[in-house]
């Protein structure tokens, strides 16, 4: 039953998913399904908080060497939860402003800082990838240099702009289209395998 019910549900809803694409009258049902996804998703938030709490509680209980970070997680989570709830019931209060400020001036900059790290990571990854150790890496290096030159070309260097345009339009597009067709077929194959119950690994087991 533990395995049969999810498989039956996957089969039924998989067929419905195909049917809504073919029978226009079922489009309304698609919206209902999407609404249900949102409802189930909101219940999953409780699952998420429970998983997070259990993970960090275990770390603290076992006196893990990094349990300090678990305390930080708990303190910040409870702090935001409490001021958020009080602020919700007392609009225009100090708590609501505090919640907004914590979000806008602590969380958002931290988020932006993580994103900003990408610039450094791109540089280090590019350095490793562009080391001309093999002929393929050399091709990558040459193409990379040409594209970089093409992006800032001026005057007599405008030839790089034309080469860049060709590189992006012809070989890159050709490779990307091949990749996209393969990915599309892979998605369809995996979906059909799941709908037909051939692929069961995501349920935990093959049998």
């Amino acid at each position: 039953m533990k395995r049969t019910l999810p498989l039956a549900l996957a089969f039924i809803f998989g067929l419905i998913g195909i049917a809504v694409q073919i029978v226009p009258a079922l489009k309304g049902f698609l919206n209902t399904m999407l609404d249900w996804m949102a409802i189930i998703g909101s219940f999953a938030l409780a699952l998420g908080v429970s998983s997070l709490t259990r993970h960090h509680m275990t770390k603290i209980r076992r006196k893990h060497k990094d349990m300090f970070f678990s305390y930080v997680t708990f303190v910040t989570m409870l702090f935001m939860m409490i001021i958020g709830l009080i602020g919700y019931f007392q609009p225009e209060s100090l708590y609501q402003r505090l919640f907004g400020n914590m979000y806008n001036y602590v969380r958002v900059p931290l988020d932006a800082s993580m994103f900003a790290l990408l610039a450094f990571f791109i540089t280090s990854a590019a350095y490793r990838a562009f080391r001309a150790r093999t002929w393929l890496a050399t091709v990558l290096l040459v193409a990379g240099v040409v594209v970089m030159m093409g992006r800032v070309a001026f005057g007599p260097f405008m030839i790089f702009n034309d080469i860049t345009a060709w590189l992006m339009k012809v070989p890159t597009t050709a490779a990307m289209r091949g990749l996209t067709i393969g990915i599309g077929l892979g998605i369809v194959a995996t979906s059909i395998k799941i709908v037909l119950g051939i692929e069961r690994s995501y349920l935990g087991g093959g049998e």
């Binding site: 791109i122 990854a125 990838a129 990749l179 996209t180 393969g182 077929l185 998605i187």
Partner: peptide
Amino acid sequence: TDASSQLPFFIAACDYTLIGEELYAAS
């Protein structure tokens, strides 16, 4: 990954990369 925009990053940074449909063939 099947995110074609992220594949170049993985190819540049990782030791092995499953390109696109190889991810679906893995199972």
